[in-house]
């Protein structure tokens, strides 16, 4: 459903992504793994239209996305969950979720009620402001906010980063729940053991180039590859 080909992205003069190509199929969880600074976030930002690529193509459900603004890309059904969470700090938890659905013209199973069922903790904190939340609560909220738009693909940037192990387990469970609804996920991680448990396939990225692409089993068996491109 997502098809990325020969993506080249720059920040100003510096060339960051080199011919990045990847695909995510319907209902698939695909990992994009790599060290800090490898170009993972930039890949997601390019797909989302936040840092438009200078060349290459991105297509989603058969339609080209390049040149579209992020708000239109979102409305086509792609949700972006940023690694720094980016909760609206002056809005309550409840309002943050409402913003996720404010331009929602897509029908789907997700509602505030369901997000609260998925994350009971958010329901308890519904009247708290964004900046009063813990890191784990912020991560739940940013995922919940993305779900409110009823996306068919979620770009998830390092959801396990900086979280206590028990919260990481919760986030893993949520990713499975979401996948079981048929939502595709492109999961960016440095934490490869976490990502591999959840994914069908994986890409390795380093220095802005895709270095490996294959199934999780293929990756697990190739310890040389993991040694070279992942901090293990």
């Amino acid at each position: 459903m997502l098809n990325v080909e020969k993506l080249n992205t720059y920040y100003g003069q510096s060339h960051i992504l080199f011919d990045v190509a990847l695909t995510v199929g319907q209902g698939e969880v695909v990992s994009l793994l790599g060290r800090n600074g490898a170009g993972k976030t930039t890949s997601l930002r390019s797909i989302m239209g936040l840092t438009p690529p200078r060349s290459g193509t991105v297509s989603f459900e058969g339609k080209p996305l390049q040149g579209e603004k992020p708000n239109n890309i979102c409305r086509k059904g792609i949700a972006f969950v940023p690694e720094d969470r980016r909760i609206f700090s002056r809005l309550t938890v409840h309002e943050n979720l409402e913003i996720g659905a404010i331009r929602e013209r897509r029908n789907g199973p997700w509602s505030i009620k369901r997000v609260y069922e998925l994350f009971p903790r958010l329901n308890e904190r519904r009247h708290n402001l964004g900046h009063q939340l813990s890191g784990g609560e912020q991560q739940m909220l940013t995922i919940g906010r993305a779900l409110m738009g009823n996306p068919s693909l979620i770009l998830l940037d390092e959801p396990s980063e900086g979280l206590a192990p028990v919260i990481v387990t919760t986030v893993g469970d949520v990713i499975r729940t979401v996948r079981d609804e048929g939502i595709s996920i492109l999961l960016v991680e440095q934490n490869s053991s976490f990502a591999c448990r959840l994914s069908d396939r994986a890409y390795l990225i380093d220095d802005g180039r895709i270095r490996f692409h294959g199934t999780i089993d293929e990756l697990e068996q190739n310890s040389e590859l993991k040694q070279k491109y992942l901090a293990v």
Binding site: N71, I99, R103, G149
Partner: peptide, 24 residues
Amino acid sequence: TPFGKLIRAASTDTEMLGALGVNV
């Protein structure tokens, strides 16, 4: 109001607001 919510959200992060489908 919904518009007020958008204004307050835009005052902290316009880029994220756009990525959530809002025409900033």
